[in-house]
Design a protein around this nucleic acid. Sequence first.
DNA 1: ACCGTCGGCGCC
DNA 2: AAAGGGCGCCGACGGT
Length: 545
Amino acid sequence: MFIALRYVADGVVATELDDEAKRPRMSVVRPDDLASWVAEREAATPRWVWDDTAHWYPPLLAEGARIERALDLRLCRRILRHATATARTALATAPADEWDAPAPVRGASDALFELEPVTAAPDPVAELRNQRTAIETAESPGRLNLLLAAESVGALAAAEMRHAGLPWDADRHAAILTELLGPRPLPGARPAHMEAVLAQIRALLDDPELNPDSPAELLRGLQRAGLPLTSTRSWELKEIEHPAIAPLLEYKRLARLLTANGWNWLDQWVSEGRFRPSYVPGGVVTGRWATDGGGALQLPKQVRGAVIADPGWTFVVADAAQLEPRVLAAMSGDAAMARAGRATDLYQGMVDAGAVETRTQAKYGMLGAIYGGTTGESGRMRPRIERAFPVAMRFVEDAARAGEAGRVVSTWLGRSSPHRTAGTYDEGTSEADARRSRTEAAAWGRFTRNFVVQGTAAEWALCWIGALRRRLWELGPEGAGAAERPHLVFFLHDELIVHTPVEFAPLAAEAMRAAAADAGRLLFGGAPVEFALSVSIVENYADAR
DNA sequence: ACCGTCGGCGCC
DNA sequence: AAAGGGCGCCGACGGT
């Protein structure tokens, strides 16, 4: 059963539909009654259908209405519009309409429903039917349906995680800052430890006015001191022997902490003991999530010590070990690679299989194969990786060749890559332009090579989240509200954090592993690939792993 | 004062 | 011959 929600002038129209999206039964619900109405209908676990989870779900959560299944029509539309599998359908070939536009900004998302739209909201029932028609005529409707369900459940989880918040000890964070940077300075001033390091740098470079915050000026200052540099990137600095380099690298480290996760960040993003980032499901072309403020997906290790569980609670932190190589093994059907992954550590498994000598070689070689790297260690390992895992390597090579030729590639479940925008250079004009044209094609090939793996890994992660949130909900305690149950609080591409009452931690850890196995089965059926997790139960995120 | 781009670096 | 994928965010900078 589906229930589609849509705003009208004086309420919400809820349309119940059967599994074929037929036999509509409409009712009008007052916005104030919506949460209790949804909670009551949720007993039948319908699939709620709406235009934008980030708009509909937070107010429901605020009222204590948790739902199990949804379809986010806007997210689904974006996938179906670009998917090769639905390219010839009416949905994909029609001119752009309001469903293709970004979701309108509609007031503070955590506020209760405000009466809506000046213009009528688009009809979700019509869009649902259009989408279903497109999927039915696609080559592999099962996979697309799974993708749309996974994308939508991700949006539910994103809203739930923002609602719950990541426990964050602001005092502990401030203490970390004070220890590394010195006391909080006045606005615009440098913290004491940065000033001290800067004084050293200026003295060692004999440049008393040097402003290291300006890359251009810093580069000139370093060159004036005779250092052979073309940029001020830290990896380039590390290649050079000079007494000013060590303090300069330290300055950059501190400056980064200050600007990205310093006191201003703390003021802006942490309140009442919670960090509430705003996730953007599907925000990355590959299907990974993005964030929209708060930088949750770049949370540096330096400040993870501030992530402390509530009293009587703890964290279960799980990280999918070598997710992308495992996904590649499964989607390419490379049995040798799957065997290497049977060891908990896939890279160690590669060593044990005799493909390479050391774990480091395995890691760099594998990542190079997925990213298209050819230099350094990954380039040196390439022939061995190709010999050991020819099936997997042919798979990513095919994706690269497709991209170079301007073709679209797709993930396992059918999310397709964007079309390559016309090359800047015309290979017919000159030798130099021809070379630049080949460089551009090669760069796009690296993108498509990575797209199929990163995108499929993102699909696995969505399935993992979906399976986990269902399993966690079933853990109980019976009849408890969402705030008393084990629940997801953080997601980082291949890592999840559950905040749980201490007594549920072992069960939550087991649910993590079971959900990872669910995700593998959902995507790849009986493929002999194991998705190993490293799981730790810790009160402080910094202690994970 | 505001806006878009760039250099640099954090995460995966 | 050479070739590392995806992001977000900050301050600086150069333009209007």
